[in-house]
């Protein structure tokens, strides 16, 4: 099987580590060779973060580069645009429509581009954009955005919802399981 490449991108602190852990747990159980590359340290302080997940028969490199990515899962609009060059022809971007201003925008040194997703769509990018924050709040916490997004991705993944839910149970602490189940379900069916 050809290697599938996924990038989970967002803003440090949005919970991309848990999202990649969930995907890693699922894919291991499915019997794939898996590599996941995480980000620790300085960039976690509100910076742009990217996590790579690669799976297939045999995976060597832990990272994904230009034109290789099958799915970009973005927690924020600007970040989807930042990494769009990694998407392969025919790949898909799943993006939360939340806008989080980076510091250069806050200070006025730069402008948050208007209609950033529409521009990408016009360029031919396949974009599945939706509001993941509202379902996360409905599930019980703004922090569940990560699981809502993974639920939405799951619908494209070719792996059953039951298997995803089993992986979710193995990944999140018991006391947050119900909230995350709900978040996942809202993402999956949303």
């Amino acid at each position: 099987m050809k290697t599938t490449n996924v990038m989970i991108v967002g803003v440090g602190g949005q919970g991309s580590l848990l999202a990649s852990k969930l995907l890693g747990n699922l894919l291991t159980e499915e019997g794939y060779d898996v590599k996941v590359s995480e980000v620790h340290g300085m960039s976690q302080r509100g910076g742009s973060v990217v996590t790579y997940v690669r799976y297939g028969d045999k995976v060597y490199s832990p990272i994904v580069t230009e034109g290789e990515c099958d799915y970009i899962i973005s927690f924020e609009k600007l970040e989807a645009a930042r990494y769009a060059g990694c998407l392969r022809k025919g790949g898909k971007i799943i993006v939360n429509t939340q806008q989080i201003d980076p510091m250069p925008v806050i200070t006025g040194a730069a402008v948050y581009p208007e209609n950033v997703l529409e521009t990408l769509k016009e360029q031919g990018f396949d974009i599945d954009d939706f509001d993941a924050l509202s379902p996360a709040m409905e599930a019980g916490s703004a922090k569940a955005v990560n699981i809502v997004l993974m639920g939405h991705f799951a619908a494209h993944s070719g792996i059953s919802e039951e298997k995803w839910l089993a992986a979710l149970e193995r990944t999140v602490p018991a006391k947050f399981l119900e909230m995350n189940r709900k978040a996942f379900s809202l993402g999956f069916h949303g």
Binding site: S48, A84, K89, G91, P102
Partner: peptide, 14 residues
């Protein structure tokens, strides 16, 4: 690649 990424403002850690 599907296309080229547009130039967007940086997001440094803070």
């Amino acid at each position: 690649a599907q296309g080229t990424a547009p130039q967007v403002p940086g997001r440094p850690p803070m």
